[in-house]
């Protein structure tokens, strides 16, 4: 009888301890979830700031002049202008190569 009584008491204690542990873990997880919710807000703020800077750096206003300076406008130019452009670019690059070889 003592054994049974003792076993019942131990069982109750163990179940209680397990319940407390589970409850504690549940609270911890809920804290983590709410923490992550705040973290998400912070990250969204950081994302929008990063996006802002990225878009500012890649804005057509900044980029287009550089792009156009390097690229001839094929679509509206006639073939002769295109050919002349190609020739001049080819000649320039060839002269550069010659110059490089000489310097070597």
């Amino acid at each position: 009888m003592y054994f049974r009584f003792g076993f019942a008491v131990i069982l109750i204690v163990v179940v209680s301890i397990a319940g407390i542990a589970l409850e504690k873990r549940s609270l911890e997880l809920r804290r983590d979830v709410s923490h992550q919710q705040y973290q998400l807000d912070v990250m969204r703020d950081e994302l929008s700031e990063s996006q802002f800077h990225a878009q500012q750096l890649g804005a057509p206003t900044r980029m287009l002049d550089h792009v156009e300076a390097e690229q001839p406008r094929y679509a509206v130019r006639d073939k002769s202008a295109r050919v002349a452009d190609e020739r001049s670019r080819f000649q320039l690059s060839r002269e550069d190569n010659v110059r490089d070889n000489r310097s070597r």
Binding site: A75, V76, D78, K79, S80, R82, V83
Partner: peptide
């Protein structure tokens, strides 16, 4: 794309 032929280039 252009729809009308433009002036021919030299050698074209």
């Amino acid at each position: 794309s252009p729809t009308q032929p433009g002036p021919l280039a030299e050698g074209e």
